[in-house]
């Protein structure tokens, strides 16, 4: 199975230039069947594993396994976090999974306070769900597992910290399961997106559905650049700020970024929305540029920003996002006859 998947993935990477032209309906169906459903399911699986690993940590003190499970669950989310329609946008789920950027450090402050007070209501899922979104998800769990005092997790002093972390992981498992269920529901958003109907509130026509898919990718690329890369790399003033990077404590900044690019690329490829061979080549080249940059950035983010070669590679990632936004948001939209919505989708 795995070998097949690997061959399939390799094929896809080289395929776009000669991609078959498929109908918009097939593009939509493929987006859901080949990307959204399996990837939301994978996120649910990884968070269930994380939840189990946290339980084991609290019982037997296996910290490394819990930290590794954190990384796997977080990057599984990185592949789908741009799917900002449907279940992810219900019940503040996206903020509860990951409240970021947290410009004022609200989450850190609240988590530290909660740990200092050993607030027992934070150690149960129902109690946790009543609290600020900033203490419910990956940001909070990262501090538990990697932040100041994480060593206590394997001692009796860290019992509350561990119980709180386990509640966060369980909460993530529940949310991820709801998201996967939402997409799996045969009468839910998957149906409305793939078989649009004028009677639906969200997707009335195939064009609107395709606009949604292309819009998700285009906005996803923009969000990666604006919230995950630009804030911490050196810009005009020449000063980098690696502590503004997501997951610098766990050294998951770059794996998360890679997962973001990977998810976006997979949706583009698996949906076959890029039918024009020349455009497909350019999209492949832009992702290759990102891959080349990722290969250079090998140090933890604090060191990477001070090393000229790695800092330049991080800048290259920004350029890759700019290329992709032009290719997807403008050229692909034009090719598909979609409206990029000059007057809409911009919160103005």
């Amino acid at each position: 199975m795995r070998i097949f998947a690997a061959i399939f993935a390799t094929f896809l990477l080289v395929a776009p230039a000669s991609a078959q032209i498929i109908s918009p309906s097939e593009m939509l169906r493929s987006s859901v069947t080949n990307f959204i459903r399996p990837q939301t399911k994978a996120f649910a699986t990884r968070t269930a594993e994380l939840s189990k690993a946290m339980y084991v940590l609290c019982e037997n003190g296996d910290l490394t396994a819990a930290q590794e499970a954190f990384a796997k669950a977080a990057t599984a989310y990185g592949r789908i976090e741009f799917l900002r329609v449907g279940p992810l946008m219900e019940d503040n789920r996206s903020d509860r999974i990951l409240f970021f950027p947290d410009r004022k450090g609200i989450g850190l402050r609240q988590v530290q306070q909660l740990l200092a007070e050993a607030d027992p209501t934070a150690a149960t899922v129902p109690g946790l769900q009543q609290k600020s979104v900033a203490v419910q998800g990956f940001g909070a769990l990262e501090f538990v597992l990697f932040g100041t005092g994480f060593e206590t997790l394997t001692t009796s002093d860290g019992a509350f910290r561990c119980a709180y972390g386990a509640a966060v992981a369980k909460n993530l498992e529940e949310i991820a399961s709801d998201i996967a269920a939402g997409w799996a529901d045969p009468d839910g958003i998957a149906k409305r997106l793939t078989q649009p109907d004028p009677a639906y509130a969200d997707y009335r026509t195939t064009t609107e559905s395709l606009e949604a898919i292309v819009g998700l990718v285009s906005h996803g690329i923009e969000a990666v650049r604006d919230t995950r890369i630009n804030p911490f790399i050196a810009k005009g003033d020449g000063k980098a700020n690696p502590k503004l990077a997501l997951f610098w404590r766990s050294n998951q900044t770059l794996p998360m970024l890679k997962a973001n690019f990977d998810g976006l690329r997979r949706l583009i490829e698996l949906s076959s929305v890029v039918t024009d061979p020349a455009l497909a080549e350019e999209v492949t080249a832009a992702f290759a540029r990102a891959d080349a940059a990722f290969a250079v950035v090998t140090s933890p983010v604090e060191e990477a920003v001070t090393d000229p070669a790695q800092a330049a590679a991080l800048n290259d990632l920004v350029i890759a996002t700019q290329d992709l936004q032009r290719l997807i948001g403008e050229e692909l939209s034009a090719t598909l006859g979609l409206s990029v919505g000059f007057s809409s989708l911009d919160g103005d």
Binding site: D95, P101, R103, S132, E222, A223, T227, N230, P231, G347
Partner: peptide
């Protein structure tokens, strides 16, 4: 009611 900051483009920072 929506907080934004130029460091984060047009990202909406306080939806909750």
């Amino acid at each position: 009611g929506i907080e934004t900051h130029p460091d984060y483009g047009r990202a909406e920072l306080n939806i909750d």
